[in-house]
Design a protein around this nucleic acid. Sequence first.
DNA 1: CGGCCAACCTGTGCGC
DNA 2: TGCGCACAGGTTGGCC
Length: 278
Amino acid sequence: MPELPEVETVMRGLKPVLEGARLDTVRAYVPKLRVDLPKDFEKRLNGNRVTQLSRRSKYILIECEDGLVAILHLGMSGRVSIHGAGTDQPERAKHDHVTLRTEQGDLVIYNDTRRFGLIVFSDQASVQDHPLIKDIGPEALGNAFNTDHLWTALQKRKSPIKSTLLDQKVVAGLGNIYVCEALWRAGIHPARRSDHVTRQEVEILVPLIRDVLNEAIAAGGSTLKDYAQVSGELGYFQHSFKAYGREGEPCLGDGCQARMERIVQSNRSTFFCPSCQT
DNA sequence: CGGCCAACCTGTGCGC
DNA sequence: TGCGCACAGGTTGGCC
């Protein structure tokens, strides 16, 4: 998926188009993504007015005036494109699964090759208690994600630090790319047992996690492979990773002569420097 | 509960 | 252009 920076970028791109807008024509072309779409999907959204967009972890929350909240997750390959009123509005493309048109004439298309994304309904009063939301840990960019919190979580775990940072119950928003990047910056080996990371290292790691996420958001989200951010003026950006995808290439650490390596941890690729990361 | 793995899908790239 | 396999940014459910 899109990780936190990409989801944040998509949410920010959708905000000016959807917030305050009344939905005019809502269509679903498939019965399910990763899970079934709500049975009354089109009916509940059509004619509704969007009041607020927000993000929780990698979920985009779309609140409507009648209290309905649509919870959107982009999975691995979900993309959102916006086609402004008065511009050419494309024919339905392969893997376009959901379209929203506003009364102003803006068109929002959800495209998801692998259909690992999802859209479910909740309501304003109980969305924080929704099963998908309720166990999520503190936002990586929020104040509640701090040294104490991460340190406490790490003490309870023997699994590799990489796996723990991917656990959304520990910290919300990190994914495979930014965990690799943050651990490289912090000089921590991804296979190190969580409970063997020192408190001093956690103090270094937490702000580095924030840095890498903030830099990616500032860059408009990274554009990579099958993920493309095309929501209007935010545009494209080429973000160059220091660790992710750099197997066999020189480590970019100061004065480091080593080459980056790739290992597989719980079926996910991890990229790291065998010299800088201990 | 912690930890691991398969499953959910489609597409792409590489070796033969 | 064919076949088979590995791999891709995520999350869940089942099992030990």
